[in-house]
Write a protein that binds this DNA or RNA. Structure first.
Length: 218
DNA sequence: AAAACGGGGGC
DNA sequence: GCCCCAGTTTT
């Protein structure tokens, strides 16, 4: 694709994604911007589907919606509350540890710096960027496998890892689109542009796409 | 029955 | 860089 096609692509996807189910990230951004909830919900969401994540997060937040209350829960209690999400055992452990660190090191608050967030267990670049952008409204680009795969498939970037994609997009992508690009491409990725056998004939931006295969999608 | 799945960490 | 993780939905 040509670099300046990005404006058309965003415009088209803004319209198209409204027809589809809203991913958890935009759900959270619409309803509330509590950085703690966004952090925990994002940890829960890793490699699990939206609806399952949303249910689990709501159940957990009903019992505890701040690090102090959440730390009082036993690991097994958290695990059973969040159950159907993938890796629930490990996530329950990480969540307790995150709460502990937030209280001890950050006075019960969620840090607003990527580098600080990355020190928390179970938090990588995707999660850190999501907290910073949605929770604090700071500039950042949240790159998951969808953003990585589709950016490469379009021919907008040429990168091997999600981290490289993040930095490449920081160079090229107009800043106005930084925060929403994740939501747009994730929606497209879930409904049309699957990792294998994408539905190109139904794709609203097919004419812009180079259809290059990503080097590594995970 | 296999593969795929909205990352991150350990090696 | 490679491999594992955990359980549900697709193919």
């Amino acid at each position: 694709m040509k670099d300046d096609s990005i404006h058309d692509i965003v415009k088209i996807l803004r319209k198209e994604t409204k027809k589809w189910n809203t991913p958890i990230v935009s759900l959270m951004s619409q309803t509330e911007r509590d950085p703690f909830k966004i952090l925990i919900a994002t940890v829960l969401s890793l490699r699990t589907k939206d609806e399952i994540t949303a249910k689990a997060a709501n159940k957990l937040f009903q019992v505890a919606d701040n690090p102090y209350d959440m730390l009082k829960l036993k690991e097994e209690e958290i695990a059973s509350l969040i159950y159907p999400v993938g890796f629930y055992r490990r996530k329950a452990k990480n969540i307790k540890e995150i709460c502990k660190v937030l209280i001890e090191k950050y006075n019960g608050k969620v840090p607003d710096e990527i580098d600080e967030l990355l020190k928390l267990p179970g938090v990588g670049r995707k999660t850190a960027n999501l907290v910073v952008t949605l929770g604090y409204g700071k500039p950042g680009i949240c790159v998951d496998t969808h953003v990585h795969r589709i950016s490469n498939r379009l021919g907008y970037v040429n990168t091997k890892t999600p981290e490289e994609t993040e930095f490449a997009l920081r160079e090229k992508l107009p800043k106005d689109y930084w925060i929403e690009i994740n939501d747009l491409l994730v929606s497209l990725g879930q409904h049309i542009c699957h990792p294998t056998s994408p539905k190109c004939s139904q794709c609203p931006i097919e004419k812009y796409c180079d259809k290059r295969d990503v080097k590594r999608s995970r």
